[in-house]
Amino acid sequence: MTEISKEANLAYTTLVSKGLENPIFSKHNNISIREKKLLIERCMRRIMKVLNLNLDNDSLKKTPIRISKMYINEIFSGLDYKNFPKITLIDNKMQFNEMIIVRDISLMSTCEHHFITIKGKANIAYIPKNKIIGLSKINRIAQFYSKRPQMQERLTKQILVVLKALLNTEHVAIIMHMDHFCVKARGICDTTSSTSTSFFSGLFKSNINVRNEFFLKK
Rank of each mutant, 00 (worst) to 15 (best):
N57E: 11
D58P: 12
L60R: 11
K61N: 09
K62M: 14
T63R: 01
P64E: 07
P64N: 10
I65W: 14
R66L: 14
I67F: 14
S68V: 09
N73Y: 11
E74T: 12
I75S: 08
I75A: 05
D80K: 05
D80M: 05
D80T: 02
Y81L: 11
N83K: 14
F84E: 04
F84P: 01
F84W: 06
P85W: 10
I87T: 12
L89A: 11
D91Y: 15
N92P: 05
K93I: 13
I101C: 06
V102A: 03
D104H: 06
L107N: 04
M108W: 11
S109W: 04
C111L: 11
E112F: 02
H113D: 10
H114L: 04
F115V: 08
T117Y: 13
I118W: 01
K119Q: 10
G120V: 00
G120C: 05
N123R: 07
N123C: 07
Y126E: 07
I127V: 07
K129E: 14
N130Q: 13
N130I: 13
I132N: 05
I132F: 02
I133F: 02
G134W: 07
L135A: 06
K137M: 10
I138S: 02
N139L: 09
N139T: 09
A142T: 02
A142Q: 01
A142F: 00
Q143R: 13
Q143S: 09
F144L: 02
S146V: 04
K147A: 00
R148G: 00
P149L: 10
P149G: 07
M151Q: 07
M151K: 05
T156V: 07
T156D: 03
K157R: 10
K157Q: 08
L160I: 05
V161Q: 06
V162D: 06
A165K: 09
L166S: 03
L166D: 05
T169S: 08
V172G: 03
V172P: 02
V172Q: 03
A173F: 01
A173Y: 01
A173V: 00
I174F: 03
I174K: 04
I175D: 08
C182R: 04
V183A: 11
K184E: 07
K184S: 06
A185W: 08
R186P: 05
R186A: 07
G187T: 04
S193T: 14
S194T: 08
T195M: 15
S196A: 12
T197L: 15
S198I: 09
